[in-house]
Amino acid sequence: MLPQASTLAKNFDILFNNIFWFSLISFALVIGAMIYFAIRYHRTRRDPFKTPYITGHHLMEISVSVGLLIVVMVIFVWGWVDYKKLLKAPSDSLEIQVLAKQWFWEFQYPEGRKLTNELVVPLNQPVKLIMTSSDVIHSFFVPNFRVKQDVVPGQYTTLWFTATQLGEHSILCAEFCGTGHSKMLGMVKVVNAEEFQQWKKTTPSIPAVSKNPQEWGKELFSQKMCNTCHAITTQKLVGPGLFGIFGKEVELEGGKKVARDENYIRESLMQPQAKVVKGFPPAMPTFQGTLTDEEVNALIVYIKNLK
């Protein structure tokens, strides 16, 4: 059996088992009837020219349909309710950036620490992964946690879990990504809170990327002249002030509303004209090619923490 190593794993197992038993019983009924008929009414026992003329039975057809409709709707609603839980990460989650590449996983912690194919997380602490890919589509899959999410180039997707079992749990890539697909394996190492603090102290951040993304983001913000047009308060300059905007909805030119999340900020940096906030001119230049993925991530972390 697969260990239930996250808070969500149990939900999956319960629903899976319920569908399993329903399926098994339905299967037994249908196949039982089929085999019984095949034996009971076998040609050696029945004259082929004296079978009864039966063309159907509406009530039976309708009751089978309605009965089944009720069951599948229960399954649907149940699946939806559980799925909603998979979507919504608790607000106190530890946020970790994930960059998938052919064929390994790169994890970057808020302090700037970077690990390859190893994700160390504390026990009983919600962890939210913000993921993107630098080449083709991958899929982040931890069977013991029953979570999976495709990792798509040019976009951010997220996934969260709270680990409930100490030890190591495999990470697999579930979306075919080429030669090394089956070797794109990683490990989630679940440790308890003290060990996690200890690990943070003893594992040095790698110098090249030692910059704390928040501080790095702050540097970039003035280096790249973002501050010419954007205040870090709520004040309006050429563009909107960025204080406290992260995660909130805003109205665009044309009346549509959009949440300003990781995807939005990234898009605004790369294609500034795509979604312009209402009341502002489409004046921003693109940073496509000038900012690396890591720099974009750093800026996002910085903007996120302006509150």
Binding site: S26, W78, D82
Partner: peptide, 27 residues
């Protein structure tokens, strides 16, 4: 056909349920 297709159809229920599909997808 009836035997196997019934299994095929019923296992489709697992995959149609959102939360269950998250784990089973691409396996």
């Amino acid at each position: 056909f009836i035997f196997l297709f019934t299994i095929g159809g019923l296992t489709g229920l697992f995959l149609a349920a959102l939360s269950v599909d998250v784990h089973l997808h691409d396996t």
